[in-house]
C-alpha cells in the first residue's frame, strides 16, 4: 500500500511542478502537436506521399506558398519529386516517432527485464549480464545500430530486407540503448531486494518472476521513466542519422532524415525549404523531448532541485 501511495504522491508532485514550469509546458505542447500530427497524418495531410499517383514531377521545387512563385496548393513547397513537403513532413514525423517509440520500448523491455533479473538473482547470471553490458558499452550506439543494419543486409535477401527495414531499424536502435535500462534497473533492484516487502513476498512463497514483476518493478519505475524519455530523443536522433546516411528507411518512404538528406542536395542551389522545414521539425521534436526528460529528471531526483 505504501508503495502505491508514494507513487501517487510523486505523480501529484509531477503535475504540481509541471504547472509551475513554462518551459516544460511549451515542450509538452510541441511534443503533443507532433504526436497528434503524426497520429492523424492521413487525415491532415493534403496528399499521401506513399501514393505515387498523388504527386507529379511537374510540381517539383515549388517554393513555400507565401514566397514568389509559390503555389497555394503546397503550403511549404514541394521536394525534388513534386511531393507536397507538408504532407511528407507529417508522414515523416509519423515514421520517426514510430521507429523511435518502438525501439525505446524494445530497449526498455529487454534492458529492464535483464537488469531486474540480474539484480534479483545475482551471482553468475548477474556477472554474465553485466559483462555483456560491458561489451555493449564499448560499442557506441551509432556503431551498434550501423552494424545490426549491416548484418541484416548480409543475412536477409534484398526484397525481404526492404520489407523488414523498419523492424531491422527498430532492433538496431533498440539494441544500442538497452544497457542504460539494464544498469539502472539492476542498481535499483539491489536496493529494493533487501527491503521488507520483498522478504514478505518471498516468505509468502510467490514465484520469483511474480516478485520481480509485481513487487519490485513498480518501485524502480521512476528512474527508468527518465531514461525512457531521454532515450526517445536519442532514438529519434539515431533514426534520422541512419536515414540521412542512407542506411535507414529507404528514400521513397519519407522520414525526417531522408527528407533532410534529399534537401541537402538542393540546398546549395537555392532550394532551401526542402532542408529547412524537416530539420526544424526534427529539432523541435528532439528539443521538446529532451526538455521533458530534463524536467522529469529534476522532479524525480530531489538532489538536483
Amino acid at each position: 500500500m505504501l508503495a502505491y501511495w508514494n507513487r501517487i504522491k510523486i505523480e501529484n508532485e509531477l503535475i504540481y511542478l509541471f504547472l509551475r514550469n513554462p518551459v516544460a509546458q511549451v515542450a509538452a505542447l510541441i511534443a503533443t502537436i507532433s504526436i497528434l500530427g503524426a497520429l492523424f497524418a492521413p487525415l491532415i495531410a493534403p496528399t499521401d506521399p506513399y501514393d505515387l499517383a498523388s504527386f507529379d514531377l511537374l510540381d517539383s521545387f515549388y517554393p513555400p506558398s507565401w514566397t514568389d512563385g509559390g503555389d497555394p496548393r503546397f503550403l511549404i513547397g514541394t521536394d525534388d519529386q513534386g511531393r507536397d513537403l507538408f504532407s511528407a513532413i507529417l508522414y515523416g514525423t509519423r515514421l520517426s516517432l514510430l521507429v523511435g517509440l518502438s525501439s525505446v520500448i524494445f530497449a526498455a523491455v529487454l534492458g529492464t527485464s535483464l537488469g531486474l533479473a540480474a539484480g534479483y538473482i545475482g551471482g553468475r547470471f548477474d556477472a554474465v549480464v553485466m559483462r555483456i553490458a560491458d561489451v555493449q558499452l564499448s560499442l557506441p550506439a551509432i556503431l551498434t545500430a550501423l552494424l545490426v543494419d549491416g548484418i541484416a543486409r548480409g543475412i536477409l535477401p534484398r526484397e525481404q530486407h526492404e520489407d523488414l527495414l523498419l523492424v531491422v531499424l527498430t532492433v538496431a536502435i533498440g539494441l544500442s540503448l538497452w544497457v542504460d535500462f539494464a544498469r539502472t534497473a539492476r542498481a535499483s533492484t539491489f536496493v529494493e531486494r533487501n527491503k521488507e516487502y520483498v522478504q514478505a513476498a518471498e516468505i509468502m512463497g510467490l514465484h520469483p518472476v511474480r516478485i520481480m514483476a509485481v513487487a519490485i518493478l513498480p518501485n524502480i519505475l521512476s528512474p527508468l521513466l527518465v531514461i525512457g524519455t531521454v532515450d526517445l530523443a536519442v532514438a529519434i536522433l539515431l533514426e534520422a542519422t541512419l536515414s540521412f546516411l542512407g542506411v535507414g528507411v529507404p528514400p521513397n518512404q519519407p522520414s525526417l532524415g531522408t527528407l533532410i538528406d534529399i534537401g541537402t542536395q538542393y540546398l546549395f542551389s537555392g532550394e532551401w525549404w526542402i532542408v529547412i522545414f524537416p530539420s526544424a521539425t526534427l529539432i523541435f521534436l528532439i528539443v521538446s523531448v529532451n526538455v521533458l526528460g530534463d524536467f522529469m529528471r529534476t522532479v524525480l531526483n530531489p538532489r538536483l532541485r
Binding site: A233, L237, A240, T241, F244, L282, I283, I286, V287
Partner: peptide, 8 residues
C-alpha cells in the same frame, strides 16, 4: 546543442 543532429 544536444538536440540538433550532427549532420544538420
Amino acid at each position: 546543442g544536444v538536440s540538433i543532429p550532427t549532420f544538420v
